Simulated scan of single mutants.
Amino acid sequence: MTAASSELLTVPEVMTRLKLGRTKVYDLIRTRRLVSIKVDGCRRIPTSAVRAFIQAQMGDAA
């Protein structure tokens, strides 16, 4: 695993990358469509999870 693939993003960073609102990002996390972890009570999303989500969406659209 490279440093870039293991980078952890905050919810606002994911909102910016996916161009989605806060509620939608938390909905994706709640429904397990976007993998996340908690670090001392703070929600973090691995960049690899964001990439996997995008790939899954592209597959669904095809």
Results as ranks from 00 to 15, higher is better:
Lys38Asn: 08
Val11Cys: 11
Ile29Gly: 01
Asp40Gly: 12
Ala62Arg: 11
Val14Trp: 00
Asp27Glu: 15
Lys19Asp: 14
Val39Tyr: 01
Leu28Trp: 11
Ser6His: 11
Cys42Asp: 14
Glu7Asn: 07
Ser48His: 13
Arg33Lys: 14
Pro12Cys: 00
Lys38Met: 07
Tyr26Glu: 01
Gly59Arg: 12
Cys42Met: 14
Ala49Tyr: 04
Ser5Val: 04
Thr16Ala: 12
Leu20Pro: 00
Glu13Asp: 11
Lys19Val: 07
Ile54Thr: 03
Asp27Asn: 13
Arg43Gly: 05
Leu20His: 06
Ala61Trp: 05
Val39His: 05
Gly41Asn: 08
Ser5Met: 07
Pro46Phe: 05
Leu9Asn: 08
Glu13Ile: 01
Arg32Thr: 15
Lys19Glu: 14
Val50Thr: 09
Gly59Gln: 12
Leu28Ile: 03
Ala52Leu: 04
Lys24Glu: 05
Ala4Glu: 15
Ile54Ala: 03
Ile29Thr: 00
Gly59Thr: 13
Val35Met: 13
Cys42Arg: 13
Arg44Glu: 05
Val11Ser: 08
Ala3Lys: 08
Ala4Cys: 10
Ser6Gly: 09
Thr2Pro: 09
Ile29Cys: 02
Ala3Tyr: 15
Val35Gln: 15
Gly41Ala: 03
Arg22Val: 04
Ile37His: 09
Gln57Asn: 11
Phe53Ser: 03
Ala62Met: 14
Phe53Tyr: 10
Met58Gln: 14
Arg44Ala: 08
Val50Asp: 07
Ser6Trp: 06
Ser5Asp: 15
Thr23Cys: 03
Pro46Cys: 06
Ser6Pro: 00
Ile29Trp: 02
Arg43Val: 11
Gln55Asn: 09
Ala4Arg: 11
Glu7His: 13
Lys24Gly: 01
Ala3Gln: 10
Ser36Leu: 07
Ala52Gln: 10
Tyr26Phe: 10
Val25Ala: 00
Gly59Glu: 13
Arg33Tyr: 03
Arg32His: 15
Ala4Tyr: 08
Gln55Gly: 06
Arg33Ala: 12
Gly59Asp: 15
Arg43Asp: 03
Gly59Ser: 12
Val35Ser: 11
Ala49Thr: 06
Thr31His: 14
Ala3Trp: 12
Ala52Cys: 03
Ile45Trp: 07
Gly59Val: 12
Val11His: 05
Asp27Pro: 08
Lys19Leu: 08
Arg30Val: 09
Ser36Glu: 08
